[in-house]
Design a binder for these strands. Sequence first.
DNA 1: TAGATTGTTAATCGATTAACAATC
DNA 2: TAGATTGTTAATCGATTAACAATC
Lengths: 245, 245
Amino acid sequence: MKAPSPREDGRSDGHSAQTLDHPIPEQTLRRVPLYHQILAEMLVAGEPYVSSRHLAGFFGIDDTQVRKDVSLIGYKGKPKAGYSVSGLKLAIEEFLGINYENTAILVGVGHLGSALSQYPGLAQYGLRLVAIFDNDPAKIGSVVGGFTVLGTESLPRVVRSFDIGIAIVCVPKGAAQEVTDRIISLGIKAVWNFSPTRISVPADVVVRNENIALGLAILSHYMKRQKHAGTRPAVPASGSPTIVG
Amino acid sequence: MKAPSPREDGRSDGHSAQTLDHPIPEQTLRRVPLYHQILAEMLVAGEPYVSSRHLAGFFGIDDTQVRKDVSLIGYKGKPKAGYSVSGLKLAIEEFLGINYENTAILVGVGHLGSALSQYPGLAQYGLRLVAIFDNDPAKIGSVVGGFTVLGTESLPRVVRSFDIGIAIVCVPKGAAQEVTDRIISLGIKAVWNFSPTRISVPADVVVRNENIALGLAILSHYMKRQKHAGTRPAVPASGSPTIVG
DNA sequence: TAGATTGTTAATCGATTAACAATC
DNA sequence: TAGATTGTTAATCGATTAACAATC
């Protein structure tokens, strides 16, 4: 198997469009959506202000870390009061770009694709699903989550008419790269890949390879360690929470 | 909203059981499952050896990084030849604990729970799903992915009879903490949480909070940056791939 | 005002990368 | 053997945490 050589063929399998310059640390980018989640719950609970210390407590991190992250996204708090919950939440949304509505299509209406097409979290983060596709004649024409499943021959027409920004790929392993190449040839610049394999894209396209099973592998390792840890004396009250992406 | 105080109440929302000592860097733990995925594909392709340089190429990282990671999991390569694909793959499986069969239950048979109960990737990583549960009378008794949906009153019986290790939680936001507490009271020590909220667990329980929408937030930020990056001259051939968990 | 909290600079810590001897 | 590749120690880089002045 040949490894991709991004320097030669201009393809990469990461957020290559981002790597041109790095003003925002990757770790900050991982934490910010977590803050957003807490802030959304606080807003519902009607809490007007939150301190960096309080926010840090949810993740077992240092409060300086929170202040630095907030500073990086360009939001200012009030000394003594803390951060405005609604203000910081909005600033994060602006920073992440989740209040711009992004139109999306989904390709591959299997179990996972079907679940995603009905997942309320997508709309919550500004994603508007416009159409779903499959190449199985038995599925084409059926209705899933309010969408009529279209055949892949309709891809060019739909992508052009709706100015689609994101393609969600949920096809089987063997079809993932081929489907992705085809979608990209239609002009789509962002791919959210849920197929159980990594895909490569040209340097001007953003891709995020999700792999649900990878999370299981990490969980599995911690379970194994925990079993063995039981044989050693436990150190009480020293376990602080860890964020594991 | 009150932040959890792990030092006081012994609860945390991370892999607290792991934080007692840290022999393995968190970043290594994130990369190792990615290596495994590539090695699995290479094994199918019949390639006997792989060099650290080749493996590193898939992720745009330094080959020294790969050698250090491999060294941390305790596997040895052959100078000049590289690593045995099957040997390293097996060593990773041993290290992650994914060749020990873990029995699991799944609670909450909504769209996502239903998709997960039929996801072939679970078995691939050593997870054996034993039963699925819901509290909706309309779902109880129906068959999803080969499992008859059980009512939650059957939880104690099933957990005890099958020595269940992992609970996969796919219930709505409002029910997640309550369901988790109940499961833990039955003796389960690992929770894989797919509900769209963070859950807290006692220090001796391992939890992994997955949130599909967080990935979308990160992708969204990169898309936004990419749009703006178009106004600056692009630096060609410098974009190396980035792993974004 | 006094006290609490932000924002930022400096110090520490950990992770990545470079250098290179050991090995086949 | 010569050349390629591992394994590991040292140097660099980046991220976290500590310290503290500024602010309300």
